Amino acid sequence: MNRLGDPPPETAAAVSVRKTREVSGAQDAPIRACTPDHFPAIMALAAANPLPGEPAHAPQHDLGEVFTFCDEQGQVRGAMCLSARHGDRLGIIHWLHDGEDFTIATALLDYARTHLSHRPTLAFTSPATTAGVPGLPVRHRQATARAVATTGFTPTAAQDYFLCPLAPDPVADPDPIAEVTPLSTIPGWQLKVKKGSGTLGSAVVLRPHPMTATAVLWHLAVHPEHRRRGVGSRLLAQCLRLASNEGARQMAAYADPGDEPVSHMLLAQDFDPIDTFSVYQRRC
């Protein structure tokens, strides 16, 4: 039991970090190069923070060097993937997983700064969703987001993530506004609202993921001269019905933060704001 005035006890992660600083470069330091036997633990770390509408995320190990944070028993408690671009000399932290332990996240980020020779660095550039959107989901990974801010990173790009539940039964489209054609390059459909020889609006819907039954509204745009006339809302409603009829149980959508017209349209169609994916930068 601590006496009044004694400092609080160190966590196991904090002890490991302190020992790393005391014996920098020693073989028993907690941050070390990844070995194949670490991969299952890294997969488990990545799957520990599920995001609604997304399957368990599998980090790519072939993007750069992978380093792990191991506790005193040799158990993997954190991991990250680093690389350095030769053209612009940027450092890249492709992904980082830490079990939402602030101390471990901070230790990994500090190590990355040293390993990348204090060069300007981008963080969380690896795709974080099945649709390929990069970034750290800041609401679902708040401890990591705090560590990122504490170590000098600031957001450089972001996408708000929305999710809409869909009816389980097929719904007839009473008044389709757009022509629907399958896409040849990616699994999904293109919708076009036409008037004469012109296009008033268009959208792209990605086919539902087999593990989550989540479709993705990948694109929706309305010609500037035809905005605020209900074209976008009707087109979005048709996208939702199309996804539901194709077996989707929810639809994901993305919007730039601060894009109020898009956000309002999504909210009006019962999309819920889930998170914000942020890519970060540090000057040096």
Rank of each mutant, 00 (worst) to 15 (best):
P8G: 06
P9V: 13
E10W: 13
A13E: 09
K19M: 13
E22K: 12
S24L: 12
A26M: 03
A26K: 01
D37Y: 07
M43F: 04
M43R: 14
N49G: 01
E54Y: 03
A56D: 11
A58G: 02
P59A: 08
D62A: 11
L63V: 10
E65S: 15
T68W: 08
Q73G: 14
A79G: 11
S83R: 10
G87V: 14
R89I: 00
G91F: 08
W95M: 03
D98R: 00
E100C: 06
R113T: 14
S117I: 00
A123K: 03
A123S: 11
F124I: 02
T130N: 05
V133N: 03
V133L: 03
G135S: 07
R139A: 14
R139G: 07
R146D: 11
A149K: 12
T151W: 02
G152M: 08
F153A: 09
T154G: 09
A157G: 08
F162D: 04
F162S: 01
P170V: 07
V180W: 10
T185Q: 12
I186C: 02
W189Q: 02
Q190Y: 02
V193N: 05
G196F: 12
G201I: 07
P210I: 08
T214M: 02
T214G: 01
P224L: 02
R227K: 11
R229H: 13
L235F: 11
A237M: 09
R241A: 11
A248I: 04
R249F: 06
P257D: 08
P261G: 08
L266A: 03
L266Q: 03
D270H: 15
D270T: 12
T276N: 02
V279K: 00
R282G: 04
